[in-house]
Amino acid sequence: MNKEFKVLSRPYMVWLSVLVFIPILAMLVISFSNLNSSVSMSELVLSVSHFNLLWESSTLIAFRNSILFATITTFISFVLGYFIAYEIKLSKFKNKFILLTFVILPMWSNLILRTESLANIMSENNILKSIIGFNIFGNISGTWIAVLFGLVFTYMPFMILSVYTALEKIDFALEEAALDLGLRPIKKFWKVVFPLSFKGVVTGSIMVFLPTLAGFAIPKILSRGQIVFIGNIIEQKFIYTNYNHGALLAVVILIFILGSILLLTKFDKEGETLL
């Protein structure tokens, strides 16, 4: 790309520096000190006393839950979402953007309304049962299955959209060539189509993984408050104005995730599949 366009990124760099860097620095200060709304500057003390929080069993379990659920959700979204994106690509329907809008349309309704309605029909006595007479989900409200279902079907549209964007560009001639060269359709898919769409999968995975990891509303509602994610703890801390703890957890997550992304780019030889 023309180097002249570099200048277009300048405003965004300023924007990110001001709105991301400074708050992160502030969060670091807050998590390493006793700074809060009622402490004046003169009483400010640096301390690592908040770090006990990190070894609290609930924090560790919440971390584990977040990472576990986010990973599984990403994987299931990838399998199902790729399938749907591929079908959209193959479909004879001309206006692909209509199909894409159709896929993401549910997300335009409020997340809480959607999640509560899911929780509603997952419980023992619910509105669907009162119409059709039986429970389609059984009584899974409050279990990990309910949470996983909610997470997958809430965030999957992100995966579909990103994968489709990548698939869209693949030249049909390439696929035909592969078939002409004697590859079976399945092999053609693995050898030709999938590698070319991998960038979309990575983007989609980031878009599914990150909000799942940091989210709190879906696990809270669908587990009936019994499965705690790290997002739930951060939210609690901030609401009860314990900014020190909240900031500490937020910073730890940030470092953890950004670190792992950075590590991935290091291992990625060609360096272009990821960022």
């Binding site: 929080l53 609290e56 069993s57 609930s58 924090t59 379990i61 919440a62 839950n65 408050g225 019994q226 705690v228 703890i233 609690q236 801390k237 009860y240 314990n242």
Partner: peptide
């Protein structure tokens, strides 16, 4: 208190 409750829930 908050931490105690979280520990009960996750425990």
């Amino acid at each position: 208190i908050g931490t105690m409750i979280q520990n009960v829930i996750t425990g």
